[in-house]
């Protein structure tokens, strides 16, 4: 059973057709990188998966749960899907540790010490345990993004969504975040990653998807994608960014 299955998904923002009849599925343990020019619908696509955007037509099934208008299905899906954002979106008044423990103590009923222990385990996993007491403003962008990854991992998701996780980072911070993602990949985490980091895509993706104007244009294994792209739009995109 695929962990994500989208069928004939349509999304409009007013008159703008953001997702055009998208069929997309991801297998358990699969790592998919989505790339494409800005405005191509990449972010919209992954934001539909955990209900941050609602689609206007089509069906979305995540981990066997159908996403419907009922609030219950969204909550069930979010409980197995972690998300990492371009702007980190940490809670600025809470320490790195508290960012990680909030959902554990308030929603999952763990005691503070259980939650702290679990959070420290994942903060160590992203190699930032020594900064646990600091607030986001006291951390670099790369450190904040690693805390955000740990925060998502604390809920032990089946699938991780990354929405341009390195796009807001200074160049020297990008590698520490990518390394963290590679190490997650090595553990077999199912991942869907919107990114322009094609080196990362080549290294960890099972499949690379090229999107343009709201449609999936080409879906290939990394070698095929980079060496023998078929669609002219993919070729044009690659020629622009690979130079």
């Amino acid at each position: 059973m695929p962990i994500v299955s989208m069928k004939a998904v349509q999304k409009w923002y007013g008159d703008y057709h953001a997702l055009k009849d998208v069929d997309f599925s991801v297998e358990q343990g699969e790592r998919v990188v989505i790339c494409g020019p800005s405005g191509s619908g990449k972010s919209t696509l992954i934001r539909c998966i955990n209900g941050l955007e609602t689609c206007d037509a089509g069906s979305i099934v995540v981990n066997g749960i159908e996403l419907t208008q009922r609030a219950g299905s969204v909550a069930k899906i979010r409980s197995v899907v972690g998300m990492v954002f371009q702007q980190f979106n940490l809670f600025p008044h809470l320490s790195a540790l508290e960012n990680c423990t909030l959902a554990l103590t308030e929603e999952l009923g763990l005691t503070q010490s259980q939650a702290d222990e679990k959070a420290m385990q994942y903060l160590s996993r992203v190699r930032i345990a020594d900064q646990a007491a600091k607030r986001p403003a006291q951390l670099s962008g790369g450190q904040q993004q690693r805390v955000a990854i740990a925060r998502a991992l604390c809920l032990e998701p089946e699938l991780m969504l990354f929405d341009e996780p390195t796009s807001a980072l200074d160049p020297e911070m990008i590698s520490e975040v990518l390394e963290t993602m590679v190490s997650l990949a090595e553990d077999g985490m199912s991942m869907i990653c919107v990114t322009h980091e094609l080196g990362f895509a080549r290294e960890v993706a099972h499949r690379i998807i090229f999107m343009d104007e709201g449609a999936l244009v080409e879906a290939r294994d990394p070698i095929g994608f980079f060496e023998r792209p078929e669609n002219p739009r993919t070729k044009k995109f690659l020629s622009k960014i690979l130079r």
Partner: peptide, 27 residues
């Protein structure tokens, strides 16, 4: 409260009560 924080809270499945008490009110 910035939209980004609200989306992060939603993605973490935080209840409206938790969001209000621990995120909105203190800030």
């Amino acid at each position: 409260i910035p939209v980004g924080q609200q989306e992060a809270a939603a993605a973490l499945n935080l209840s409206k009560k938790t969001i209000f008490r621990h995120i909105v009110l203190p800030q």
